[in-house]
Design a protein around this nucleic acid. Structure first.
Length: 280
DNA sequence: AAAAAATTCAACCGCTTATTT
DNA sequence: AAAATAAGCGGTTGAATTTTT
């Protein structure tokens, strides 16, 4: 009852290849009872002949209930493009901004849709140029932001009590946005500029024609338009797809010493760090 | 109609990082 | 403090499916 597909084989005691419905059932039941993790004990407790690694993968990429099935939407696609232009192949980082999508899925999607030709110096160069521009914009914005904060602080001292501003870091349920809201106009302009910039860079490398008719539109639209967000409630919850509110800075800190992505330096994101922006 | 080519995507591998013993 | 085990990551593979010739 196993060799239905070519490689439903056993090797070193572990089954390999595609999962059957029965196997899925066992794994799901295990997780229901014991929670996620301890993947190696799945085999021991359920008799499933799968390695822990295999179990984890199956759960994370396929069985998890919070997974979003169905095709990548144009909105998601544009996010993938934007974030890939920024982070390169850090799929799990990118996936964190796409609830319900797995790194594997995103990786597959990107490779099949946007990878044309070689891994490209072009991309790296485009990204470098992009980041340079970005840094300039941000230091500008930072200035304005600081001025704004000063003013704010003065006001607060006059009126309210405690709270030294460091609180923003993780707790507040309305993170980064509150600050950002103060400068909505600036942010929107900045965002618009960045979107333009980004697409200027990533369109050429993305397969010529068919690629972006929807994505580009969606990206520029998503900045301001909201009405048609029916199928993405959680993505839109108050935050636009702005540079300031999207990602988690923890990821920026690694790789400074010239890792896979050429090692850009963290000072590129002074503003974001200031805001402690962690998201979603 | 059928064969070949291209695409898709679930699952694998090896390696790195984190956690536990 | 170190060794062992588990989790996580990104690249790659290849069977199944779809498209093209």
């Amino acid at each position: 009852m196993e060799g239905q597909f070519g490689w439903g084989r056993e090797e070193g005691g572990w089954r390999k290849g595609p999962w059957t419905a029965q196997e899925d059932k066992l794994l799901v039941e295990y997780v229901r009872q014991h929670g996620e993790g301890r993947w190696n004990s799945v085999a021991k407790l359920t008799g499933l002949k799968r390695s822990g690694k295999s179990c984890r993968l199956r759960w994370v990429n396929y069985l998890r209930p919070d997974l979003k099935r169905g095709k990548i939407t144009p909105q998601e696609e544009s996010v993938i493009l934007e974030l890939h232009a920024l982070w390169g192949n850090r799929w799990s980082t990118i996936a964190r901004s796409l609830p319900g999508r797995t790194d594997n899925e995103i990786k597959n999607y990107w490779r099949t849709h946007f990878k044309k030709g070689k891994p490209s110096k072009n991309i790296e160069r485009a990204r470098a140029r992009f980041l340079k521009q970005r840094r300039e914009m941000q230091s500008q914005l930072l200035l304005q932001q600081q001025q704004g904060q000063d003013q704010q602080q003065r006001q607060r001292q006059a009126g309210d009590d405690h709270d030294d501003g460091a609180v923003t870091r993780e707790a507040s349920s309305s993170p980064a946005v509150s600050l950002a809201a103060q400068h909505e106009e600036d942010l929107q302009m900045l965002q618009q500029d960045m979107d333009d910039l980004l697409f200027q860079f990533c369109c050429p490398m993305a397969s010529s024609s068919c690629l972006l008719p929807g994505a580009a539109a969606a990206a520029s639209a998503s900045a301001s338009e909201e009405g048609s967000t029916a199928d993405h409630p959680q993505l839109d919850g108050g935050a636009t797809w702005g540079w300031g509110t999207l990602w988690n800075l923890d990821d920026v800190v690694d790789d400074v010493d010239g890792g896979a992505c050429g090692g850009w330096d963290t000072s590129l994101f002074p503003l974001l760090q200031d805001q402690g922006l962690a998201f979603y």
